Amino acid sequence: MVFRFDDYSNSSPTEVEFKVIEAFRRRGLKLTLAVIPYECKSSQEVSLQDIGLSAEKADVLRRALSMRIIEVAVHGYCHQPVHSRDNDPRSSFSEFVGVPYDIQLAKLSRSKRHLEEILGEPVTTFVPPWNSYDSNTLWVLGKLNFKVISARRRAPATPGISLKFLSTTASLPRLKRAIQFGRTVTNGQPIIVVLFHHFDFREWDPARGRVTYQQFEELLDWLVAQKDVTVRTIEETAHVVGDLSVDRFLANRDMRYSFRQNLMPPFLRNFIRWVFPRVVFVYLSSGDAGQMKFLIRLTLLDFYVGLLAGSVALGFLAANPLLRKYRRGQVLLLYAISVLLILLAAHPTRNPQLFYSGCMALVSVAGFAIGVWNASANLKYRIGTEKRLQR
């Protein structure tokens, strides 16, 4: 298990960070601090006027490092988005996505050098702000000798890259559930990465807070009692765990894509989350992630096959008595269903992502049409048989 405490900076609340570090120290636990090295006025470029980490903040890090409580990770340059949502509401916050290679190199080389000068030791873990980056970021990290990147499981990756990946999987309120579900994985070194910020504490931010300090300390006490759980930093985990390769990351990412694809109705996603909770809370091995991907897709296929079969049966049962009573209306009914099918088929073509609502409607109407056509064919066969018998 890994704890990742983000947004340590000149402007972050030192009192909260003291409490968190002290809570881990008293229990002999470790955590990774994702540190924002600079304050800057513009996120578009690197300036000599940008303000580095203060002496007070640097002292806190050095003391914690001397006690081997924490690992320091580079958390971007100044944690400011390069794109404004005022101009494009659909854009997501990011300090690196879409930024040219040279600018990313300048930002991250200066960030890494600044923290290493303060701490007197190498910093080899990168945590992108908002868990967001692009392919240029990965090439820059390789050039600067970073060893590990920790972000979300839906982020980009380049096959064959030597960088190690360790994605976040849980929050503080879900820690116990994550451990319970992690225990269901019997092989492949399952990993849980808990991400939290200072605003997750209700004493500091009543609106966004998820836990109180007391609940946080009780959670750590409970964790210490779990003898089958080992808490390490990101760097230590990268050394101990045999496989944190890009292949493992891609397997987990593909599994998540299967789980979150637009063909998946929300209620089916909730069902899968209930049956296979480790999909959400655990960073699985490549083999386990591949197996879960297969099971997710099989569940999705079973759902649509069942929906089609049920619609066929419903169409047959509904049309059979109507066609017997209104024989002249069967052609009109078939034409009406055909037109509806064409209209529904055009819906996904307008949206290449094939939203689940349109797909469910299309499969349902197609199945109903098949049932009606079967009922019509069955009726014609019976009428023909009766006429032959009367002769």
Rank of each mutant, 00 (worst) to 15 (best):
A151I: 04
P159S: 10
R110Q: 05
S109P: 10
S109I: 10
K147T: 13
L119E: 07
I161E: 05
L105P: 02
G160E: 11
E121A: 13
G98Y: 02
G98L: 01
N187H: 13
L138S: 10
P129F: 00
D102F: 10
P89N: 08
L172A: 09
T169Q: 02
R90Y: 08
D88F: 07
T186G: 01
V140A: 01
I179C: 06
S109Y: 10
R113H: 13
Q80M: 15
T124S: 14
D88S: 12
P100N: 08
V99M: 02
I103P: 04
R174L: 14
H114W: 06
S84Q: 12
T184L: 03
R85S: 11
Y133A: 06
P81M: 09
L166M: 11
V123L: 02
P159C: 10
F93K: 08
R153D: 12
K143Q: 15
T158W: 07
G98E: 04
D134Q: 01
S94C: 09
L119M: 09
T186N: 01
I161C: 05
T186D: 00
K107W: 05
S94N: 07
A106R: 01
S135K: 13
A170L: 02
L115K: 07
V82L: 04
V127E: 02
F126V: 08
P122G: 07
T158I: 15
R152T: 07
G182F: 03
I179Y: 04
S92R: 14
K112G: 13
R90C: 11
S162P: 12
A106K: 03
R177V: 13
G160W: 06
N87A: 13
K107G: 08
T186H: 01
P89I: 08
P128A: 06
S132T: 04
L172G: 09
V148S: 06
G188N: 04
S135E: 15
P156A: 12
R90S: 14
G120K: 02
V123K: 00
I118D: 00
G142A: 13
A178Q: 01
K143I: 09
G120M: 03
P156I: 14
F146S: 05
S150P: 12
I118K: 00
P81T: 13
T184W: 00
Y101E: 06
Q189C: 12
L163P: 09
F93R: 11
F126R: 00
R90E: 12
A151W: 02
K112T: 12
